[in-house]
Computed example of a mutant assay.
Amino acid sequence: MFRGLRAAWRRGEELFAEVALPEEASGEAGRFGLHPALLDAAMHAGILNDTDDETAVPFAWNDVSLHAVGAAAVRVRIGRLDGRAVSLSVADVTGAPVLTVGSIASRPLSVDQFVSPSADGGALYGTEWVPTAVDASAEPAWADWTEVGEGGEDADVPGVVLLDCGVSDGSVGVPVGVRSVLDRVLGVVQEWLAGERFAGSRLVVV
């Protein structure tokens, strides 16, 4: 779907292109202001201006105006500004404006910045548990929220208060259960922040 660049031309520092969604995706164009695949393909023409080993990646967009919605095919003009910045004008096949961008600033990205997966096929991201020494004498007292928050103002507040949201018994559906848990957590947090009673304690939500 993102291979929508159909043709491209250069005139001095200007680039022109024709971009279109594939037929099977054109029916989705009306769901967006400008279909993301169409906008992405419109930017592909800018690769023609890359003259070194670095590819410019769009970073900051300024003065963006959407003039029409639902386009499935567009014509693009990319103008060179100072440095790596460009301007972008997008029109439909009749020439009516669809999108204008005053400037798009880019940052260079070289091949050397990509890191290949490890040779053993390990994941690029993972969870690593790091052991940490704990001074047992410094451990604060714990208490359950039902003993403190729901026990009234007279209940002592220890250093750490545990709010155990638990897991539902399955008698309610997931959406209802999620809303119930979020509603409870929100209420507790609002009460926690409303006064000074819990200022010296930490709330742990499980």
Rank of each mutant, 00 (worst) to 15 (best):
G200N: 13
A73W: 01
E196H: 09
S110Y: 00
A91S: 14
D164S: 11
V204H: 10
A133H: 06
L182W: 03
R10K: 13
L162R: 13
G187A: 04
T55C: 09
V157E: 09
V57N: 00
R202E: 11
F198Y: 15
L34K: 06
V176M: 08
V176I: 13
R31M: 07
E191N: 11
L182K: 01
V64L: 15
V189N: 10
G33E: 13
D52A: 03
L124D: 01
A68H: 06
V64E: 14
E28N: 12
A91G: 09
A141W: 11
P158M: 09
T100C: 11
G151C: 14
L124F: 04
E54L: 01
G177L: 04
D50E: 14
A136N: 04
V74M: 08
D40M: 03
V157F: 14
R197H: 12
T132M: 09
G79C: 09
E153N: 04
T127K: 10
F16I: 03
V115K: 10
D154R: 06
D169S: 15
L39S: 01
A105I: 04
D52Y: 01
V130Y: 02
L163H: 06
A155W: 03
P22G: 09
G149M: 05
V98I: 13
A123I: 01
V174K: 02
E28C: 04
E24S: 14
G152P: 05
P58S: 08
L124P: 00
G95E: 07
V134A: 06
G151F: 08
Q190Y: 03
L182F: 04
A194H: 07
D92N: 08
R84L: 15
G126Y: 10
D144A: 15
